[in-house]
Write a protein that binds this DNA or RNA. Sequence first.
DNA 1: ATCGGCTCGCGCAA
DNA 2: TGCGCGAAGCCGAT
Length: 471
Amino acid sequence: MSGSVIQPERVQRLNEASADPGGRYVLYWMQKSVRTRCNHALEYAVERANDLGRPLVVAFGLMDDYPEANARHYAFLIEGLADVAASLAERRVRFVVKHGHPADVAIDLGRDAAVIVCDRDYLRHSRAWRDRVADEMKVEVVQVESELVVPLEAASDKEEYAARTIRPKITRLLEHFLVPLGEVELQTSSMKVAIRSELRDIDVTDPAGALERLQLDRCVAPVPMFRGGQREGEAIFGRFLDGFLDGYAGNRNQPQTEDVSHMSKYLHFGQVSPLWLALALKDSGGPGGDTQTYLEELLIRRPLTHNFCFHNPHYDQYRGLPEWSRKTLATHADDPREYVYSVDELEAAGTHDPYWNAAMVEMRETGYMHNYMRMYWGKKILEWSESPEAGFDAALHLNNKLFIDGRDANSFANVSWVFGRHDRPWQERPIFGKVRYMNANGLRRKAKPEEYVRKVQRMVERGETEGPASA
DNA sequence: ATCGGCTCGCGCAA
DNA sequence: TGCGCGAAGCCGAT
């Protein structure tokens, strides 16, 4: 173990099997951490390959019907895979993308493996895939965490109530985990290793062609504004550090400005490392308050959403909300609603509220919405739905369908926050009960929503080809 | 412009 | 067991 720093807390054996010395290669089943720099699972797999004197094969399973995914998500994902293909070739590491269910791909390629290394994801379906592979394989399956700076169990072994309860548990471990990950050179080139598999190869070096050939849900179009890939994500973050970090604490809740890093989508697809982001921030020498504000998002709030999804079996359901908020919302379930919109009416951005409509257009046309508007957007869906349950389902559905960074742990926690999760009660009022209320006056008081509306209009008129990549 | 009240439950101090 | 306080708020009183 030389060169890299992979804390033992990141590494978990998923079964009791041992490594097979007869295996022809070490398999890194890449599924969540789709990147080559600052990926603990990759470096761990290289080390195991070197220790066993074997080549390394990295494989990704690309299925047609990934849960809730459509062309908008696939386009971003495949661009990230193309970046991985190019980077791994430079490191003389063999990379294959196979058409099939991720677990089937891992099991198929794992038959010839000495060890299977996988990365980590916290959502229900992903966990089930890894459990299945670990159960079915007769060879060691080991999972390496690289999606959180402080590994989930190291911080807390229970569902946390709020940011304030998890914050000290994470903060005291940063010294141990917030350290660079070195790169390890693979000793046995794997570019020529024979791979026995009936599964079809997908050539991701032509992302548009690969996207075309998949049998996927095309109900939402890809957006040209944001391109996937680690190179792209890291470059965008570099421009954020140079141009927008200064003043971030004061401007991050100003939706009419561009003081945002756009990292959420890259984090969702594992295309940038949260550790890399945190280290880049600390190295940037930017203003302390601005850096602290960003680190709070990255190191406390985001892990809190992962803690929520990992420990709450109903993270994607209304019943996953806290007792107090479900109770107070039930009390007001029959309150008269001045406006009620269906999911289709919401998606069409045809409500009476111009601020809300602008947010909905931004979401639909760009796969992104400013963070502050996401709160307002959600609160109004609660207010304008026939029941809180219907509002929850509508908000989560639109979130996951339209955001590039939808279907993330953040998505489930953020929608749940609208309905009281990780929040506290406030003064009781119609429909909301004691759940936090937001209105357009607050928007006007704190930001410039009229400018935001104009910004969205301009973006749509221009055909939104100008993203942070070309800014 | 600024401030306190609203309201629940966690976690720490005692 | 008591007590302080919390991601993003609102609202009325000063």
